[in-house]
Simulated scan of single mutants.
Amino acid sequence: MVLSEKPGNGGARPGGRTARVRTSVLEAAGDALAERGMDGLDLADVARRAGVGRTTVYRRWGSVPALVADLLQDMAEQSQPRAETGSLIEDLTANAHLVRETLAHPRQGPLFKAIIAAATCDERTARALHRFYEVRVREWAPCVERAVERDELPEGTDAHEVVRAVSAPLYYRLLASGGALDEETAERSARAAVAAARAGVYVR
Rank of each mutant, 00 (worst) to 15 (best):
A126I: 01
G109E: 06
A126P: 10
M38T: 13
L26K: 03
L174D: 06
R60L: 14
E101H: 03
V57Y: 11
D91P: 03
E84P: 12
T185C: 09
A117N: 07
L175V: 12
A83L: 13
Q73Y: 04
L72K: 08
S4L: 05
P14D: 14
G200L: 12
R107N: 10
Q108L: 07
Q73D: 13
G8C: 10
A195Q: 12
R107M: 08
S167K: 09
L170H: 07
V162L: 01
A119V: 09
V144E: 00
G37A: 02
R49I: 13
I89Q: 12
I116M: 14
P169N: 01
L26G: 00
A193D: 09
H97T: 06
A165G: 05
M1T: 07
A196T: 03
A83Y: 10
L71Y: 03
A12D: 04
A117R: 08
G156K: 11
V21M: 05
A50R: 04
R131S: 07
T56W: 08
E77D: 15
A168I: 06
V135R: 14
H105C: 03
A28W: 11
A190T: 04
A119G: 13
Q80Y: 02
V201F: 10
P7G: 03
P14M: 01
L88Q: 00
E5F: 04
L174K: 07
H160T: 02
T102R: 06
R188K: 10
T102D: 09
L170C: 01
Y202P: 03
A44R: 14
E35S: 15
A195I: 02
G109Y: 08
V2C: 02
M1S: 05
Y58N: 12
Y202F: 15
D31H: 13
A128L: 01
E123G: 01
Y58K: 10
A114F: 03
T157R: 09
L41Q: 11
Y171C: 05
T102P: 08
G156M: 10
A190H: 02
L170N: 11
C143H: 00
T157C: 12
S63K: 05
R54A: 05
R138V: 00
D158C: 13
R54N: 04
E84Q: 11
G51S: 09
Y133P: 00
V201G: 00
T185R: 10
T102K: 13
P106A: 08
G62T: 08
R13C: 11
A195M: 09
L71M: 05
L153T: 03
P7W: 06
D182P: 06
M38L: 14
A126T: 07
